[in-house]
């Protein structure tokens, strides 16, 4: 089991709303509108990104992109420079997604999404939905974007700006696309998940979560899906035709509701953040779990690995954050 090695802690004084890790630098989006950049060599830079709260963050090119409740979408350089990409009056930019495969960027504000086809391109005219967009997810190639909303998910082809609808009645509050491209999952307002197998639009429904699922991610080359929203980390099998008729595996600590999951990029090791502020690493194979951050004042709100999986960054609702270093740690 990995041991928490030298760690770096940050005491921000605002909610950590998003986290992204580019090679060599981690970015923390904060409720005071700034994005704090922490380089692997220790250097800290604060980018004054938003007048309000930064609400969403993603890696973009060799830097980052963030959206805020000031209606701005900004590009953030590794040096902390801020360049405005979009400004909408009276709207929150709540979601942003970037495809590493195609370089395309999509952000959502209210019912509209805006596509920036490649870095440097101008935002396209907005594409509208009947209700607000509550989540975004690219397909693996970065040619399609899934937009969650009331009563389903719209799958847009970026090139032709045409959409197909995956429908399911109710309020969908987030969306995730399988890394093999075969499945789309949503989280529902009613503490349940919904999903579609894209080949035949077969539905899947996973209920019984005690809280809303706000985070999920596939691991083991897409064979398993780790989900938050319960005391344990609930893992659903996605090999073959999907999880229909199969049961889930519960792994990890059992004490406090899991608020965010982050599977390791290369190994079957799941990092999970919890409502009690703790962060755990659980080896999927034998369900062996280690606490790498002790319980603290507020829930963990963001969690992500450095792309090589050697460092794990976390952030909490009260602004407490840190980067744990597992370089050289034994498996």
């Amino acid at each position: 089991m990995s041991q928490a090695a030298p760690a770096r802690f940050l005491a921000n004084d605002a909610y950590v709303t998003g986290l992204a890790y580019a090679p060599g630098v981690a970015a923390f989006a904060l409720g005071d509108g700034t994005v704090k950049l922490v380089a692997d060599d220790g250097g800290e830079t604060v980018a004054a990104a938003h007048d309000g709260a930064a609400l969403c963050l993603a890696v973009y090119g060799d830097g980052f992109v963030s959206g805020g409740d000031d209606g701005r979408l900004v590009r953030i350089g590794r040096d902390g420079s801020v360049t405005e990409l979009l400004k909408l009056r009276g709207k929150f930019i709540e979601h942003v997604a970037v495809s590493p495969a195609s370089g395309a960027l999509v952000c959502a504000a209210g019912r509209d999404i805006f596509i920036i086809a490649k870095p440097g391109a101008a935002p396209a005219e907005p594409l509208s939905h009947r209700t607000s967009v509550t989540g975004l997810a690219f397909d693996p190639k970065g040619k399609r974007i899934a937009c969650a909303h009331y009563n389903g998910v719209s799958l847009w082809w970026l090139a032709s700006e045409t959409a197909t609808l995956l429908d399911w009645k109710g309020s969908h509050v987030g969306v995730w696309w399988h890394p093999g491209g075969d499945f789309v999952m949503t989280a529902m307002q009613e503490n349940a998940l919904h999903g579609w197998r894209l080949s035949d639009k077969q539905h899947m429904r996973m209920a019984g979560y005690p809280a809303k699922t706000k985070s999920m991610a596939w691991f083991s080359k897409g064979k398993w899906l780790a989900t938050a929203g319960s005391e344990a980390v609930i893992c659903w099998p996605f090999d073959g035709k999907g999880p229909m008729g199969k049961s889930a595996r519960e792994i990890g600590p059992q004490g406090s509701i899991c608020t965010v999951v982050a599977p390791h990029p290369n190994r079957d090791l799941i990092a999970s953040g919890h409502a009690d502020g703790s962060v755990w690493l659980t080896r999927f194979e034998d369900d062996k779990a280690a606490c790498v951050r002790a319980p603290a004042a507020t829930p963990v709100s963001a969690l992500t690995w450095r792309p090589d999986g050697n460092r794990l960054a976390f952030g909490c609702e009260d602004g407490a954050a840190g980067i744990l270093n597992f370089e050289g740690a034994a498996g």
Partner: peptide, 10 residues
């Protein structure tokens, strides 16, 4: 959604 986002503001 709006209330959840407002609660994140410093």
């Amino acid at each position: 959604r709006i209330l959840a986002n407002l609660m994140k503001r410093k």
